[in-house]
Design a protein around this nucleic acid. Structure first.
Lengths: 252, 252
DNA sequence: GACTCCTTTGTTAATAGCTAACATATTTGA
DNA sequence: TCAAATATGTTAGCTATTAACAAAGGAGTC
């Protein structure tokens, strides 16, 4: 109920742009003002709204007012990514040692995942920052050149480092997928890093929201048979699903 | 006078992102709080800022916040650190290759510093994220275990990596200083890393706000004679100043 | 210069909104 | 089913904001 209410508040705010607490109280007569305040506080922490005196304002509205375009990457298929991230986070067991990539889906995953004792290796600094909130998660950041577009790092040195490291699990996502070209991304060093990770990981979970399907990016880092589990959303085409299942891959 | 002040407020806010009225009052000691309030009100009408409780926020900041998670850590001696960071940022030349640590002062420095072409190595992921906003800055993140308290990394591997890297300049800060025990911090691996950095850096600038003075932390990584320039605030004790100057260190 | 009009700035009191702290209810999970 | 964690409600105190009025400049006119 909290989750839904917060979601609804966010939606209303995105629609109306700006609302006072009084107005919100009228929309949600069943809860107290304080609860709404707390909801707004949380939405602010998530970066979805800005609290102003007497109410709140949607970030979208701000961006509209200021007239500037905002990065669309964070908004593509957000809901699907969150669902996927939730699903993936439920698969993480206590004490596990895992690799997590630096993509937006991994970002949501690190928000959703429970605060259990485990070891996470990541090349995404935004992911690392998010995970730093969790008391019990041990984080190791992969060093290297920082790519500003996706806030992740990669370097030859990191590749070597991973050659001497073992993971129980690697959870990654691709920016493009076709059955013929497999999973691909836009950066060669990232692709190299992921290849290395795949060699050392016992299990590989791929998070792939349906917007990535049918696209091809320059650097392929894995093929269908390289992964163990595919986590996707309900818009995932049925015909593809059978391809994965024929390779003994669990599709979620 | 009004016009210029408003312009200046807008600029400062674009840089710092978010400021309290208290801080603004310190920046503009010659006018009353009410005047600043009115200025903010006007800037809001112009769509350049958003007024929030206790201060204001630049629209640019809003766009940034909407992308990432938002940590609202309030730190000690913020104002002094900002002053120190401003001073330090004025010392950075185009094309330089430098190391920056992961502390809060370095964080402010990365906000204040101009967007010039240069190479920055850092072990602070918050610093790296901040620098990622600058188009012309090349960033390299040091990998390793993430320490959650200060969001910086350190590892033996990183030490080796730096053994093969040269810097023109290292800008670091300590969490404690006494003349006898030198500059110290709370983590052994961080201390090791800094020692290595000091060996490879041609010049070392130390940022030290006065709240650190007289304190001792477990791991000393440098002594007075190891640094070239000390950047501090105006509460820095005079008797200490002479100690530094006797060692040919520029005190700012 | 003295006067008026207009803009900017400062001061104060009253109010609205926020936070913190605790109390209660509800959910989760063992 | 119980205990622990999470979510919600209630209150009191406090802080920031507003509004209204007063004072101080600036600009133009006689």
């Amino acid at each position: 109920m909290k989750r839904e209410r917060i979601e609804e508040i966010a939606e209303i705010l995105d629609k109306r742009g700006k609302m006072s607490l009084d107005q919100l109280e009228k929309e949600f007569p069943s809860v107290s003002q304080m609860t709404l305040r707390r909801d707004l506080y949380q939405l602010e922490e998530d970066g979805r709204i800005i609290r102003i005196r007497g109410g709140a304002m949607s970030v979208k509205e701000v961006q509209k007012v200021s007239g500037e375009a905002y990065t669309k990457k964070t908004t593509i298929n957000t809901d699907a990514k969150i669902v996927i991230a939730q699903k993936a986070s439920s698969l993480i067991d206590e004490g596990i040692s895992m690799f997590l990539d630096g993509g937006t889906t991994a970002m949501y995953l690190s928000k959703e995942m429970p605060d259990i004792a485990c070891n996470v290796f990541t090349n995404g600094i935004a992911v690392a920052m998010e995970l730093a909130q969790k008391k019990n998660v041990q984080i190791t950041v992969v060093g290297g050149q920082l790519m500003k577009d996706n806030l992740s790092t990669a370097s030859p040195a990191a590749r070597e480092y991973f050659a001497a490291t073992n993971f129980e699990l690697a959870i990654v996502s691709a920016t493009a997928f076709t059955p013929e070209n497999g999973f691909s991304c836009n950066s060669q060093i990232e692709s190299d890093l992921l290849k290395q990770v795949f060699q050392k990981a016992r299990h590989v979970y791929m998070m792939l929201d349906s917007s990535k399907i049918g696209k091809i990016n320059p650097y392929t880092f894995a093929h269908i048979e390289d992964i163990d589990v595919l986590i996707t959303d309900d818009k995932f085409p049925k015909e593809y699903k059978t391809i994965f299942e024929d390779n003994n891959i669990v599709v979620m």
